[in-house]
Amino acid sequence: MSDAPKRDELTGVETTGHDWDGITELDNPLPKWWLYIFYACIGLSVLGWIWYPSWPVWMGEWTYLKGVAGFSKRAEVSRELAEIEAGREVYFKQIRAQSLEDIRTDPELLQVSLAGGAAAFGDNCAPCHGSGAQGFAGFPNLNDDAWLWGGTLDDIHTTLRHGIRWEADMDTRLSMMQGYLKDGILSRSEVSDVVQYVLGFSGREDDNEAARRGATTFAEICSACHMEDGTGMHELGAPDLTDAIWLYGGDKDTIYETVANGRGGVMPAWAGRLDDATIKQLALYVHSLGGGEEPQP
């Protein structure tokens, strides 16, 4: 491929000696200014070393030349972050000062809150509730209209601040679904009977006799929290047993397991861990996912 340079007949210029399938390249001299630009670039890079942090140096320990401009990428990032924080603070101030209902009717604040809430949800809530808030068995789906502890803005806000069964928080939401078989309160057959009765709320019982027997147990024990008609109670986080939504699963075996061994899901209290404005944003975001309830007049 490489030969001795030849002189091109047509132009009288030497070739580079490189030959690609008969194509050769003339070895014309480069223009001078091109060379000067090259030198200018070298000069500029030297200026860069002086201006910006550059070489590592040994001064008793390894450090580096700081540059006369005092420039630091780390400081730059901190400054930019502080700028973002300051920009957010304008909204955060208003969010902290205003009630959730007022924020909701202010389109700009609402937009900021929903965006901020979505980000905070991804950072803090998604591990249990899923990135789309769709939940998993034992971790409620926040998109639907079934709320254990209530689905108004204020209810969600309270749950977020104080958590559920979070003992470190004095005001946490507390209730207990005992293990009725485990704790020796009900026998196996009594549990089976009450499961048949519960299935009956959604018309799915397969043993009417058992269901009738279970009705008595339900009235004596379960209705204290789940109410006599099985529709549950927000104040105690008792789920509605008549609807189509089951936190742990609505099949016979899972309901049996729930009654026999009890349940007691935990959600941490976020007050103190997240700032108040972020918690408000989260409440607004979760409420906007489609199942948010309006306060009863």
Binding site: G130, Q134, N143, D144, D240, A244, I245, G290
Partner: peptide
Amino acid sequence: RDRNPLFVPLSDGSVRNG
């Protein structure tokens, strides 16, 4: 169309899409 969740079953058995 929302992809996460794909759809949301509601308490009365209806289904919602976002």
